[in-house]
Amino acid sequence: MATGGRRGAAAAPLLVAVAALLLGAAGHLYPGEVCPGMDIRNNLTRLHELENCSVIEGHLQILLMFKTRPEDFRDLSFPKLIMITDYLLLFRVYGLESLKDLFPNLTVIRGSRLFFNYALVIFEMVHLKELGLYNLMNITRGSVRIEKNNELCYLATIDWSRILDSVEDNYIVLNKDDNEECGDICPGTAKGKTNCPATVINGQFVERCWTHSHCQKVCPTICKSHGCTAEGLCCHSECLGNCSQPDDPTKCVACRNFYLDGRCVETCPPPYYHFQDWRCVNFSFCQDLHHKCKNSRRQGCHQYVIHNNKCIPECPSGYTMNSSNLLCTPCLGPCPKVCHLLEGEKTIDSVTSAQELRGCTVINGSLIINIRGGNNLAAELEANLGLIEEISGYLKIRRSYALVSLSFFRKLRLIRGETLEIGNYSFYALDNQNLRQLWDWSKHNLTITQGKLFFHYNPKLCLSEIHKMEEVSGTKGRQERNDIALKTNGDQASCENELLKFSYIRTSFDKI
């Protein structure tokens, strides 16, 4: 039985969820670079991206490699990797027998973001014989899940209580170790020597080791999670996991709180800001991140802002960003909400898709409305799209047979046209069989910064309504002859009103 693990408890099935942008060198404390989270699957090609990484700022997932063999891993080693800020997950990587050479110096898994409450997941690794993470000293947050690894031993010899604050939620089941077939031998045991430290858990006094050649490092209890030197002297209180010299914040392997210019500090002093819960960055760093993602459509890219001495992905609820200094300031009234469309555009074809934009005031991208039916549609669209004030790209209304009016965009005031449909149009209306009105132009103002209007096959939309939009939106004169079809717009509506004058002759039985 794995020490510190839980057996036999019912657990939810383990679901495996399925960018080499360097964020800056980590400095003297770390020998390499800070790398983003990685999802490495199918083959070993991307694994080489770990070569210079000291910190993975995010998670590391290595999974679904069915053609790899043990010899493929023999020359692979990433000794610079010290810390993973989120979680480490391995799933069905064939041929991998140990992690001792792959990650010989991995010391800390912070667990800032977890995989279903777990910071370390080893699942269905069919050839893994031992973990071998002999320098792993601290899992700051989260638990361990090690399950269905039929060859995995050296679990009962690990004292997880020396690595985690609590072992109650560890789930370590259905491994070879369960069948008591392992016969784990710690260093020196074969020669009758006791080389590794022994600890007591559940009444068992057991030597602690990761492999037959690597003991588990056990520091004096007084050192807590700070770690200790090879001689057993406690590291500085700002260290986490390990250090090369005692009581020196510049000799830590990793930091308990924050890293700044080669030393570990309790908090980031001005003019620095907390970033990702582990390091200090200056304003320029946060500003660069903001600008890199301002026009990016890459998933996970955030326009970072500053709030409460932190550089964070977005302002919290009730705050909006001051564009001059990136500071989050309290909103006066309802907060603006910028919604970034991942692929640059979004099609609204149902109430469900409209709900995804609920509360958005600025759309960074283009909207395509293609709704053919739905219950209580006008009210639903207004509830979900009615706060949109600005669209950076274009607005396209296409084959939306259920629409009679666009009044559900009740606050839309600006279409920038930074991206144009077919390279020309910022407003595009095609084949809307029941569209009769755009907006009530006596109450609604709309500016279209650039781009043209396109109207074709809107049989109940009168040309007068379209011409009014040209005047109000500032697009009059931009359109070419064929942009607004004269014969297919309003051709099934009563669009022309003329005053009919009647004269009559009164007659009676005795007068003409």
Rank of each mutant, 00 (worst) to 15 (best):
L76M: 06
T199F: 10
W160G: 01
L174K: 14
P36F: 10
N257I: 01
G58W: 00
D39N: 15
W210G: 04
C335S: 06
M83G: 03
I109S: 00
C335M: 03
R298K: 04
W210T: 05
I84C: 01
V265H: 12
L44Q: 03
P31S: 15
F205M: 07
V305E: 03
C235Q: 00
P70S: 04
K217I: 15
L64M: 13
F285W: 06
V265K: 04
S77M: 15
C182F: 14
L106Y: 00
E238P: 01
E180V: 09
C315R: 00
F103G: 00
G232I: 03
T199K: 09
R69Q: 10
G300I: 13
H28G: 00
D39A: 12
F283V: 11
K294V: 05
K193R: 15
M83F: 09
L128G: 01
C335F: 06
K67S: 05
L260V: 11
N105D: 06
K217E: 15
P316F: 04
N295R: 12
G333P: 04
D288R: 15
P79L: 03
N135H: 07
L131G: 01
C223P: 01
R256K: 09
L50N: 01
H236Q: 02
Q245V: 12
A119N: 01
E130S: 08
N242I: 06
T329S: 11
P270D: 11
P330T: 14
D165S: 05
T85E: 04
K100N: 15
F91E: 02
S237C: 09
S244I: 13
P104K: 02
L44S: 08
H226D: 09
T250L: 10
I222A: 15
L332S: 01
R162M: 09
I158G: 04
N170D: 08
V121S: 09
R92Q: 06
L240E: 02
H307W: 14
R46C: 15
H59K: 00
G37V: 15
L99T: 06
V167L: 04
P187C: 06
R279T: 03
S161F: 12
Y154T: 08
W210K: 10
G32Q: 15
T320M: 09
C235Y: 01
P249T: 11
C268T: 00
S77Q: 12
P36K: 07
P271S: 10
T189N: 08
H48R: 02
C153Q: 08
D277I: 04
C215L: 06
L64K: 03
P249F: 02
A190D: 14
N175Q: 06
P330Y: 15
C328P: 02
R41K: 02
L88R: 01
Y304Q: 03
N308D: 10
C239F: 00
H236Y: 03
C293M: 02
E314I: 02
I185A: 02
C209V: 03
I306L: 04
G188I: 14
N175D: 13
S317H: 08
A156W: 04
N170S: 06
L64Y: 09
T189A: 10
Q303T: 11
N175W: 12
G183K: 09
N242D: 09
L99H: 01
N195G: 05
P246I: 15
H212Q: 14
W160M: 09
I158M: 10
T211L: 15
T199L: 11
R110I: 10
E314P: 08
S77V: 07
R46T: 02
S324E: 08
R74G: 02
T85C: 08
W160H: 01
K67M: 08
L327D: 15
E238M: 04
V218C: 11
I109W: 00
K310H: 07
P31T: 13
D248K: 03
